[in-house]
Design a protein around this nucleic acid. Structure first.
Lengths: 351, 351
DNA sequence: CTGAAAGCGCTTACAG
DNA sequence: CTGAAAGCGCTTACAG
């Protein structure tokens, strides 16, 4: 590989002069600089090696997005895609790299934290994920989207508890009293299936915890015994696992409406319901969360949240910190209930 | 930041010993190693700094995907998304980074090439893009998906010319004689609008050039004068630009069928047709290319190509080279005509 | 089994 | 306006 030293030798100048030609042209005479650049072009030198610059300057020129689960999930899941779209919408990535930092296993993979990025956007990690400790230990600027909420780290999120209350209230308003709940993951230990109060109390995912608390508040306000409402944990985020969980929820419990913590899980319930011959919303009402792009075509009733804008805002708050401006405040964005055709009045049998 | 030197000092060993503790444990006694790791943990040392490792070892631990246009496009365009999904499907990214290298402007942005990646997957660049020269000058292992076809660089593609022929033959079989063509971009100079033979001859995008040649071959075999068939160039890849181009095609020419070089452009034609009150396929037949996920729900007749598998294969061929195995051969994957509901028989008026 | 030394490519005070 | 020198964090022959 041709380096600055090669260019310097060929041009008959010091290596420092070549460096100046690129990064501080005002320190050289115009002729000197022109001669150096011509030599560089002749040798096929494409400019200062990024690794050398990075080691010397302490800046990598890239920011990271830390995501639970795999890269494949990142490119497949609609919400994550919207978030990424929002992040790159800030248009700062002409001279900045964007590095995806998936965390497929428990712990592991902290290689990505070893100086590769100047700042990190964290999306939906469990409260005590070890990667967060590393980030804080290294004092890497960060912004969290959704979870977890860490002291001193700006958060971009929504009022999850209130939105959860809205989901249940919508179903109660329609006359439903026999509800079921499907949630993606409460504790990242790979377990799945029906959840009891003890596991609910150990929920390590802030977003899910808040929404479930909202469900509980809405039930209690309506004199429904929350402890008797079946709650199934999927254990993952993908549709296949969701369908399996939805089946176990629908098979074991006589419910007329299901609350899902995401549109993907709502879709899993719709698929399982179809396989069981249940009509929606005649036999079963389903409400999702996110209003992902797939929600409207399916007529899914859901809570709309601005995923793209969340990403954009998170990126802007990170750039603010990288510029050295004071740490920004948390931002909570608005949500809406979007009524479509997967929820309807409780039928007579749902006394 | 805490470095190896700090850990070494605290543990009372040489800095080299700390390095060995991480990368060559067999060179240390078990006790020595344990003591070092305990000290590292106590100091909050997260392991060797990636930049230092990279500078010393000459490997960055990441591969790049070089894409025309912006990152936002990469996360939005269905075909690109499928390609990325295929790349990460190889499951090698637990200890390997994936860096996206968008090339939004002409030239520019070669920063990404300066030692940041060990290998590159190039997707659909014009024949003579300067970034390709840099990659070759630096002798960075690469694989090209679709275009351009460079001597000595493995290509993963399809038989574009033949597939183009199939598109036109399908319309001819249905009785159409007044065809129109919409293509994304022939020359990356920002121009758009109707294309003449001179511009066609300068087409710098291998895939489009091949498909257009296929269109020409099919027309000539059917005694249609290809020079009289209107061809509109969109100048970009996004839907909005496509709809504008489709309007100018439909407004200025009396066609009964449109051939599009991608499903996105086909969708643009469908949108423009709807805005003009044309029924599909009654008044206008439209055939796309790709069979992207959005094609089936819209009933789009199209050419199916295995985008996800293209990505997977490209990644595997790149890993082959990074391992030092001999350079693999080009691979051409199969395509299919998928008949759906946007193409139908030419009506009577299309004499 | 352990340590001292060289050097990867670069930037930036510092001296001339 | 220009150059010699130090050092960013690390790995790996080499010597003990």
């Amino acid at each position: 590989m041709v380096t600055m030293k090669d260019v310097a030798r060929a041009a008959g100048v010091s290596q420092a002069a070549v460096s100046y030609a690129y990064s501080r042209p005002e320190k050289l005479s115009a002729g000197q600089r022109r001669a150096i650049m011509a030599t560089a072009a002749r040798l096929g030198y494409a400019g200062p090696n990024a690794v050398g610059v990075s080691l010397r300057s302490g800046r990598s020129g890239a920011i990271g997005v830390m995501l639970m689960d795999t890269l494949e999930y990142a490119f497949t899941d609609p919400s994550t895609r919207c978030l990424l779209e929002g992040i790159v919408r800030t248009r700062r990535f002409d001279d900045l790299g964007l590095t995806l930092l998936p965390l497929p296993h428990d712990g592991g993979d902290q290689a990505a934290l070893r100086g590769l990025v100047d700042g990190v956007i964290v999306h939906s990690l469990p409260d005590d994920h070890p990667a967060l400790l590393t980030l804080r230990a290294r004092d890497i600027p960060m912004v969290v989207v959704d979870a977890p909420h860490l002291p001193g780290v700006p958060l971009v999120g929504i009022a999850d508890r209130e939105a959860g209350r809205w989901q249940v209230e919508h179903l109660l308003d329609l006359g439903h009293r026999r509800l079921g709940i499907i949630a993606e993951r409460l504790v990242p230990d790979g377990r799945h299936g029906m959840v009891d109060a003890e596991r609910r109390a150990r929920c390590a995912e802030r977003v899910v915890r808040e929404r479930i608390t909202g469900y509980q508040e809405a039930c209690e306000a309506a004199d429904l015994d929350f402890e008797r409402i079946p709650l199934v944990e999927v254990g993952g985020f993908d549709l296949t696992a969701g369908v399996a969980a939805a089946h176990s929820l629908l098979a074991g419990h006589d419910v007329t409406a299901v609350v899902a913590t995401s549109d993907t899980m709502a879709r899993a319930v719709l698929d399982a319901a179809a396989e069981r011959g249940l009509r929606v919303p005649g036999d079963l009402s389903v409400i999702g969360f996110d209003d992902a792009p797939e929600a409207a075509p399916r007529g899914l009733t859901t809570i709309r949240q601005p995923m793209v804008y969340k990403g954009q805002l998170a990126a802007e708050l990170l750039f603010t910190q990288l510029r050295g401006d004071p740490k920004p405040d948390d931002v909570y964005l608005p949500t809406d209930l979007v009524r479509r055709s997967t929820t309807g009045p409780a039928s007579l049998r749902s006394g």
